[in-house]
Write a protein that binds this DNA or RNA. Structure first.
Lengths: 158, 158
DNA sequence: ATGTGTGCAAAGAGTTTGCACAGCC
DNA sequence: GGCTGTGCAAACTCTTTGCACACAT
């Protein structure tokens, strides 16, 4: 499946932050740094937003073909636990992952036909959200805003 | 996660509309009306929004214990195809279904402390959504907009 | 040395499908 | 009677887990 995304690189400042988050978490839990984990983590950092396990594994195997997919699952679970990655399920049956700080400032527009995912940002919606929350006496922590529809290509194909 | 909902009944006007949508679709495709289909469809109409296959099947089996789950899957696929139901995947691994007109214009504000759910409507957000969709060439089908935060009571209690 | 991490394959969970029989039109 | 629908079980897909061995600390 095709995933459109504009973000493929992440600036090294953030990456340093995430690397240290991970190290701390691993130190605290007595976890070990292995070749596979380092490779998977760095590959994840270089991946487009919303990578699936399979996409990530195939990238990883370009460097080391013996890595098993269970290791990728386990490593991404680890990244999720320590707040470096977010797990996203868009309903195509795959779990996708993105860097944690990507999640804060964009939402998703998803094609129900072909699964294409487009990211969008809309400050006005953010403002309206705050207003609604305030009206109901809430202090916002976070939100999930996904729009489902049919993309241009799929409309043309129909 | 449990999905709380306030909607359990649907007014009979809409149901008539949906029943005829279904009949037409079945007539057009030469599909047949069977005891199982009628039972499953009517049970679905009486179910809370966001029923899962399993919940629906267990309700159906109270009336006829010999119904198989494949039939429920197939019938809900049918309802989805003819626009009577919407399929929703919230990420807990289950597919849930709701009457098409429920996928309406209210969204949810959820307290992360006590679980209170407030429904809200914000026409301006709807407009912005349409604008964003159009900008990316999408035709919107539906959306999920959930805001998580701390409600007034829980703030006071902290 | 100790115990975590890895790869493999098998097990799980939810959904779909192939098949023989049941039953609508 | 012809063809669709059903129930069952097996197949599928994605993810998790158990196990024996590899390897960090």
């Amino acid at each position: 499946m095709k995933v459109k995304t504009t973000e493929t690189h992440h600036d090294s400042q953030h990456l340093e932050h995430f690397r240290s988050l991970l190290s701390e978490h691993m130190a605290k839990k007595g976890l070990r740094s292995t070749d596979q984990r380092r490779l998977i983590v760095e590959t994840f950092f270089l991946s487009p937003s919303h990578v699936s396990i399979e996409e990530l594994l195939s990238q990883v195997r370009k460097q080391d073909s013996r890595v098993g997919y269970a290791t990728v699952y386990r490593t991404l679970k680890l990244l999720t636990e320590c707040g470096v990655a977010y797990e996203r399920k868009f309903g195509d049956g795959l779990t996708r992952y993105e860097l944690a700080d990507d999640a804060s400032h964009h939402d998703h527009l998803i094609c129900v036909e072909c699964g294409t995912i487009v990211e969008f940002e809309e400050p006005e919606i953010e403002l309206l959200q705050e207003r609604i929350a305030k009206k109901h006496g809430f202090v916002l922590r976070n939100h999930k805003h996904e729009m489902y529809g049919v993309c241009g290509e799929c409309q043309a194909r129909a």
